[in-house]
């Protein structure tokens, strides 16, 4: 799924990476615990979280995650946005809560990548 489709589906605001919205993500992982994300996220996954600290961007960096979505109206700091920009990670923010965000993307065909 293209990140631009995710923007439309979630009515999301793109905080950085507007030039990278044609990138594709294959799977998705939603959690506020970065340890779980590090343990369970698959390759090329979009990360959905309500946690809002720099370690979210760092976790995305470690996993080569192309896109982070902050749910339930969380807004990252400018320092976090700058970090993401340097690492070429798209940052989106949506007003949807985690459950709805996951549901909308799942319904549109994105899965967690489990076999």
């Amino acid at each position: 799924m293209k990140i631009s489709e995710i923007v439309d589906l979630l009515d999301a605001e793109c905080l950085t990476g507007t030039d990278m919205l044609e990138k594709e993500v294959k799977t998705a992982c939603g959690s506020d615990m970065m340890s779980d994300v590090l343990a369970f996220a698959k390759d090329n996954a979009v990360l959905m979280t309500g946690l809002c600290n720099p370690q979210v961007i760092r976790t995305a960096e470690m996993l080569d995650t192309p896109c982070v979505i902050f749910v339930r109206s969380k807004r990252p700091t400018q320092a976090m946005i700058d970090m993401a920009e340097e690492r070429e990670i798209v940052v989106l923010a949506t007003n949807h809560r985690m459950f709805s965000t996951c549901g909308i993307l799942f319904q549109a065909g994105l899965t967690g990548g489990e076999k």
């Binding site: 615990m33 970065m34 340890s35 590090l38 343990a39 979210v56």
Partner: peptide
């Protein structure tokens, strides 16, 4: 620590994995 997004009890097992 949990509020920072860590401490789910997955760290060491994941390091081993």
């Amino acid at each position: 620590v949990r509020a920072l997004g860590f401490g789910a009890g997955m760290g060491l097992p994941n390091m081993k994995k």
